[in-house]
Each structure stands twice: as structure tokens, then as C-alpha cells.
Write a protein that binds this DNA or RNA. Sequence first.
DNA 1: CAAAACCATTGTAATATTGCAATATTAAAA
DNA 2: TTTTAATATTGCAATATTACAATGGTTTTG
Lengths: 113, 113
Amino acid sequence: MGASKTHIFNYSQNTLAVMAKVLAHPARIAILEHIHKHESCMCNDLVGITGLSQPTISQHLTEIKKVGLLKASFIGKNLFYSLNQEKWIALQIPFNTLFTKLNKTPNKTTNEN
Amino acid sequence: MGASKTHIFNYSQNTLAVMAKVLAHPARIAILEHIHKHESCMCNDLVGITGLSQPTISQHLTEIKKVGLLKASFIGKNLFYSLNQEKWIALQIPFNTLFTKLNKTPNKTTNEN
DNA sequence: CAAAACCATTGTAATATTGCAATATTAAAA
DNA sequence: TTTTAATATTGCAATATTACAATGGTTTTG
């Protein structure tokens, strides 16, 4: 069937899965790291750095943009991408929520999810 | 071409991507939450809870097992899965490393990745 | 032993993802 | 206005993922 049955699951589960998917490719992690390290980047840089083709990089950037993690702005004449810090912080919340929840021994007396 | 060019990227990037991929499906998040909440589970429970078929659940469990997040043990006569707490804690490290690294304004004087 | 319960595996189909060549598109420079 | 550059989009091919029916292997019950 191929398509995930997202309707079965709750909002938190689906949201976290979407965020995780963005981090689920090493190129996108490398892109995020590079963009942050250089504060921003003219994204043909990424082609040279990764060795991936320009359309492939563009595609990965689109995936990262889709969840709002990138800000685009002109510096002088060129378009630069930079990390949307607010979104980056926000992204950590569902991860940390799950991390914390599953760290502790569950309390049987409290409610269900 | 369809296959990720993992050789282009470094160990941390590939490792994090693999971990993220495990969390990149709501069913696997639901499974992890359920297993933790009930300490362990007889995994036909998950079929009833999610509405996914038994082979699909089994497949997702295999994915989670592959990264070592599950421990299997017999309780009485039945096979129960439980969360490998050590692995769960360990999984958080690369995520938090990336989270923290990209939180701060990068220090231009320090070294490259 | 036969039936039932549970789970894994296999086979198959549908859809998604990854990647690149070719081709737009857009904006600055000549 | 043409050329150049940077990036986006389209089209296609290869591979991966998701899902389930059918089947197989175990173990427990009857």
C-alpha cells in the first residue's frame, strides 16, 4: 500500500514523525550544520561541499523549508538561507517530551495517552 | 537514484539519520509509547490498538529492534518486548548534540566539523 | 495428537524517497 | 537587451518504505 496510515495516530505522534523525517537523511543534517556554522549560505556552496547535484540539494532544502526550519533573505544581491532559530527550538520540544516520557518508569496510576 | 549516498557524510550524520528514521513513522512512536507505558507488551496487543495488521506491526518492531531499542524476554509463557533503557538514553545524545550545537550562534574562531 | 494462539517470514502491490539530467526561472551584470 | 549566475522545477529511474494476505514455525491447550 505504501502510504503511512497517519489518521490512525494522534497529532503529537504524527508531528514528531514529520520532524524526525527531516532529520532522517544525512544530507539534511549536513545542510543544517553547514547553514548554522556559516550563519547562512548561498546554497550552491552545498553542492560543492556535499558533491550532490544542484537539483538534489534544492530538493533537500525544500524538505527542510516545508517544516519551516529555514529563513530566506537577500544579503546584498544574493539569496541566503539561514536557520529559523525559533522553529529549531520548537522542534526540540516534541523530541524532548518523548525522550523524557520514556526515560522514566511509567506511573501506572496516571492516565492513558 | 533512490539510495542515500551515505558515504558522502560522516559517522555522526549517518548515525543520527538512522536514529531519526526509526522515529520517522507515527506507528513506531506509538509502539514505543505503548511498550513503555505498559512496561512491556505482548505484541499482538499493538495490532488491536493501532488497527494495523500483524505483519505490519511485526515489521515496525523489526525496525525498532534493528537499532537495539527493544529487549525481548519471556514472561511466563509469552514473549514480551520492553524498551532497552540504556539504548534509549544513548539515542538522545546525538539528537541533543545537534540540538545544542545549532542553538548557539556559531563561534567562527573554532574548528570545522 | 489436533486445535488454537502468537509471532515471524515471504511475496506482492502501492506509494515515497533519493538522485540526476534537462530545462525553466529569476535577477544581476555586461 | 543579451549574457551569466544561481536556484527551482520537471521528468525519469532506481531504490526504499509501508502495508497486508498467505504461509510457516512455535508453543500452549484441549
